[in-house]
Write a protein that binds this DNA or RNA. Structure first.
Ligand code: SF4
Ligand code: SF4
Lengths: 134, 134
DNA sequence: TTATATCCGACCTATTTAGTCCTAATTAAA
DNA sequence: TTTAATTAGGACTAAATAGGTCGGATATAA
């Protein structure tokens, strides 16, 4: 419960490694997956999500790979999570309205406040805060 | 991702309802499950966890049920979550040491800080903060 | 032309979450 | 003393999510 997924972890590791190399040079999925013991195909798909969202830029062909496209310091963790995993919410009713109890639910309001606090917290953490290890 | 489970929600709803009735009278699982459209057996098992943890007190037999045993204002949400779902952590390495990358992992430290912030947040929210609707 | 990349969907597997079933044990009340 | 209502708890099944794999397409440097 309340865990991040491997895909998110892998993406963070990848970006962290790319930042180390500087954002001029390209880093391939192969390189990242080998150096960190991450399943190639899964990381590849995750990088594709980041490319679609224009977090990184892809260069195809031999000696291709990815490079950072946006400054990680302006990317919120909330955004990052949702690029990879889709809508994020503490409970179902925070992003869809399918719950039967939604009218009479006694805990919805207080728990929604917690949801907001968490979102708020991740809105104030940037990708840079995690990938720039210190 | 980052969602609470139904068991946690059901437990919160149950406790919320019990608090409304006052902590002298007993509330049965049947009553709670019917009034809130919650699966009886699942709620029953969840209440048993709370009883073992002495959050509530059980009374068997006809007209039996549960009543609050501890003051909800002194129970941290962290504790509550872990009673129901077991060890809570943002990633695997925050409560077990089985991850292969644990030595070389570039993101462990910064992400551990986030984990600590979340724990800290839930250490400062009491059960009462959620079950006493306002 | 070939080898090396990303791209992308379909698929499979494992794990976790959610829900069900069945059989005690306890006890108030008929 | 029997019956019905309640909690206790294990075994099981079903559904949803997470994690991982495969195959083929597209682009491009050498
Ligand atoms: S309405 Fe209540 S029970 Fe339904 S998802 Fe929201 S918090 Fe949970
Ligand atoms: S060591 Fe790194 S990869 Fe492993 S669980 Fe911890 S954060 Fe995730």
């Amino acid at each position: 419960m309340l865990k991040i997924t491997r895909k998110v972890e892998y993406a963070l590791i990848a970006l962290s490694q790319m930042q180390l190399k500087g954002n001029k040079s390209l880093t391939s999925v192969k390189e990242i997956s080998q150096q960190n013991g991450i399943p190639y195909e899964l990381l590849a798909k995750t990088m594709q999500l980041l490319a679609r969202a224009e977090i990184v830029e892809a260069v195809k062909g031999p000696h291709g790979g990815y490079r950072l496209k946006k400054d990680p310091s302006i990317i919120k963790m909330t955004t990052f999570f949702e690029i990879i995993e889709g809508p994020m919410g503490f409970m179902d009713c925070s992003f869809d309205t399918d719950c039967d109890q939604i009218q009479s639910c006694a805990i919805r309001t207080p728990i929604q406040r917690i949801n907001d606090s968490i979102r708020n917290m991740f809105n104030n953490i940037s990708l840079q805060d995690i990938t720039m290890l210190s």
